Simulated scan of single mutants.
Amino acid sequence: MTRRERWPAVYIMASKRNGTLYTGVTSDLPQRAWQHREGVADGFTKRYGCKTLVWHEMAGAMNTAIAREKQIKAGSRSRKRALIEEMNPDWNDLFESIAHG
């Protein structure tokens, strides 16, 4: 992994286009997205099938990432959808783009 992939990140996983959304924070985005995809950890994303990485944003520090996650979670569903569609209008799975550089 490159150094950039180890930086803190905020991300959104989806069950499908306009489906259930999960917002999270991690220090290793490729690993965490893989865990959601494979359903290796019990919890919200496994229960609701949120396996598609549809949005992410890198942060310079974990406290910055956590603050951004809280901001996103406090926002409306329409604001989350707007964030996704600005970066990823077709709601494609972004996993391959972060897993392989």
Results as ranks from 00 to 15, higher is better:
His36Cys: 06
Gln71Ile: 03
Asn63Phe: 13
Trp91Ala: 01
Lys73Thr: 12
Val10Ala: 06
Lys46Met: 10
Arg4Phe: 15
Lys51Asn: 15
Arg77His: 12
Thr64Phe: 04
Leu53Lys: 01
Arg79Phe: 14
Arg79Ile: 13
Lys73Asn: 09
Phe95Ile: 12
Glu86Leu: 08
Lys73Tyr: 07
Tyr48Ala: 07
Lys46Ser: 12
Ala41Trp: 06
Lys80His: 11
Thr23Leu: 03
Arg4Pro: 12
Ile12Gly: 07
Ala33Pro: 06
Arg37Asn: 11
Pro89Gln: 02
Glu69Met: 05
Arg68Gln: 08
Asn92Ala: 10
Lys70Phe: 15
Asn88Cys: 08
Ile72Glu: 04
Ile98Tyr: 05
Leu21Glu: 04
Ser78Arg: 02
His36Gln: 03
Ile84Asn: 01
His56Lys: 09
Val10Trp: 03
His100Val: 15
Gly39Asp: 06
Arg47Asp: 13
Arg17Cys: 11
Met1Cys: 09
Arg3Phe: 15
Arg4Leu: 15
Arg4Ala: 15
Ala59His: 11
Gln35Cys: 08
Gly43Asn: 08
Ala41Tyr: 11
Ala82Trp: 08
Thr45Lys: 00
Leu53Tyr: 09
Thr20Cys: 08
Arg79Val: 14
Glu5Pro: 03
Ala74Ile: 02
Ser27Cys: 05
Gly39Met: 06
Ala82Cys: 06
His36Ala: 05
Asp42Trp: 09
